[in-house]
Nucleic acid binder design. Structure first.
Lengths: 350, 350
DNA sequence: TTGTAAGCGTTATCAA
DNA sequence: TTGATAACGCTTACAA
């Protein structure tokens, strides 16, 4: 890689002025004669001058870089979010560092440290857990941070998230209205904040409808198609604490998990929704076209991203101090993966 | 955001030595007394010292940052690729700047310039076109670059890509073997390299089978569900140069486009594969579970990402000079979105 | 209106 | 074995 040699000093020589004159001219400082300014600016263009943001950042502590740390870059759910983040950031002249924590706290720490080292001006993070040394570190180092997809406990922090309890309630109620009472929850990893909240919503909704909570009906697994298909296999082969005939419906923390059930349906030859009704969560691309179309709970992913980036930039640029917490509402999308067990059709209505 | 104040100088004061001693100690320079070294290192840990990579980069020209510029961050196709890139980069201690060009050359230029400004050590890019001032710039500035998903013409450059001509041939042949001769190509934007190559493959395969090329059967649209559904609408309402009864099958540049056809099938009430057979491209998540399961051509996305990152790091770290070009092979995945028009079943076999 | 000089946090060279 | 010092490219008082 070529050493970048078109610097202010270089331009100064070409222009026959001092380098600080060039610096001011490039920053359009009115103190510099308009002609000199124009001349230097066109010289800069001619030589393809790009300012060294590192040097700039070293002096002015502005790097125009924002770090985004998520749990799974590949998930369509997250990708819609950081698409939105990137768009807004880009528009305002910022660049985005993106890193993947893979649901692992150690890796998250590494990511945070690297980002700080890189001099990011702020961080948007979907933290692995809601309470961790990593979050304490962020607070202690006073890093501008916006949390997405969860709300760290203990300390009031900026965040944007969807009410997962409400989402669970939406999914569960729909199933219950359709006559299901034995409902399997295919949840994410146990320590995951969204898993915990979803589980809360699951329990609460069950209680609300006077349905006893059965902990065997709750399974924690990584959010992947494979892990889900394996879990279903264990159940169907009778290797699990719950048997295949002890539930008629499944709610999931993520559409990816729901797709895992579709995979299992292919492998183990059961029918959705005849054998099991399924309600997903997130409303990722393509769920509408699955066989059968997946009934799911929508998360406003684009709005999440825009909000997060907006809040962060506000703090950075206007050094806005107050706490901003945005809670977005989930929305039930009824499609065809739920079978009604209710005889009287009039009862089915929401 | 707190001013980062734990610097080498700060540690020097605490340790009661000169700052250059600290610098050497932190770099484990054997010239420094082992005890002093240990003492300073534990001090660094105690105060949570993180080196300022900007300053480091300014001196040593190493920023440990790699830029990744893609056309559409949201596309599941690309997200699998940069997941793989990020993993490998991360593992080697690098961070990844990620930006979205949105199939727009101007935005691509802006991204490139910003990345250079940010001092990235190399770039992985799926360029908007195969020949542009942007690419010339990259060459002129001697930026370490690996192109993915296409191969810039004119100049030998490092790249990793799937042979789109072969992919088109795979898709087309499968359709032709199943008795289709009037095959609509729902392509991406006309200037997009992959669109052009796919179109080449389409024409060649047609020629190979003695089927006349009809340019009305080729449509260029943005790679989105909406644009595709709109295009199908125009055709079906008789507003296009081709009518709905003049083709029996559709090949697409991307599974996202294929999903757009599924959307249109819902809106305009036609059947896949009875009305139209469909063959996608990419094999993105969930295509296996669509209704009907999508016959598509797989691209090895993870391998693309790994290769690209590997080649780039090789150039950077071992200043490997030679040109590396990796061509990956597409693979036909037969599922259920193609209807056979052939009577004699024995002819259907591939 | 332009130039000089100091400093941001490192690394690297040379001297002590 | 340690410490001064200069330099990376930029911003910003302050001086001319």
């Amino acid at each position: 890689m070529k050493q970048r040699n078109v610097t202010i000093k270089f331009l100064a020589e070409k222009a026959g002025v001092s380098f600080s004159t060039v610096a001011k001219a490039l920053n359009n400082d009115p103190a510099i004669n308009i002609n000199t300014r124009k001349r230097i600016q066109s010289l800069a263009k001619e030589y393809n001058y790009t300012p060294n943001i590192l040097a700039k950042g070293l002096r002015s502590r502005r790097t125009m870089a924002i770090g985004v740390i998520l749990n799974d870059l590949q998930s369509p759910f997250y990708s819609e979010i950081y698409k939105a983040i990137g768009d807004l950031l880009n528009q305002k002249g910022y660049t985005m560092f993106l890193a993947d924590s893979n649901y692992d706290e150690e890796r998250e720490l590494k990511n945070i440290l690297t980002m700080i080292s890189q001099g990011v001006e702020g961080l948007i993070i979907s933290s692995v857990s809601e309470e961790s040394a990593n979050i304490d570190l962020l607070i202690k180092e006073e890093v501008h941070t916006v949390f997405i997809d969860n709300l760290p406990t203990g300390c009031p922090l900026c965040c944007v998230y969807v009410d997962h309890e409400a989402a669970a309630a939406l999914a569960l109620s729909h199933l219950i209205k359709n006559g299901h009472t034995n409902i399997l929850l295919l949840n994410g990893p146990q320590n995951l904040p969204s898993s915990q909240r979803y589980l809360n919503g699951y329990k609460e909704t069950l209680a609300l409808h006077n349905i006893a909570y059965n902990e065997n009906l709750v399974k924690h697994n990584p959010i992947t198609i494979e892990a889900t298909a394996d879990q279903m296999g264990r159940i169907l082969r009778g290797e699990d604490s719950i048997k295949g005939d002890q539930f008629s419906a499944i709610v999931t923390l993520s559409d990816v998990i729901a797709i895992g059930i579709y995979e299992a349906a292919l492998t183990y030859n059961f029918s959705i929704p005849d054998t099991y009704s399924v309600v997903g969560y997130d409303n990722i691309l393509a769920t509408k076209y699955l066989n059968p179309p997946l009934t799911t709970v929508n998360q406003p992913k684009e709005r999440t991203g825009h909000h997060a980036a907006g809040i962060l930039l506000n703090r950075i640029e206007n050094s806005q101090k107050g706490l901003t917490q945005v809670i977005l509402n989930p929305e039930l999308l009824v499609r065809s993966s739920v079978k009604s067990l209710v005889k009287d059709k009039s009862l089915e209505k929401d």
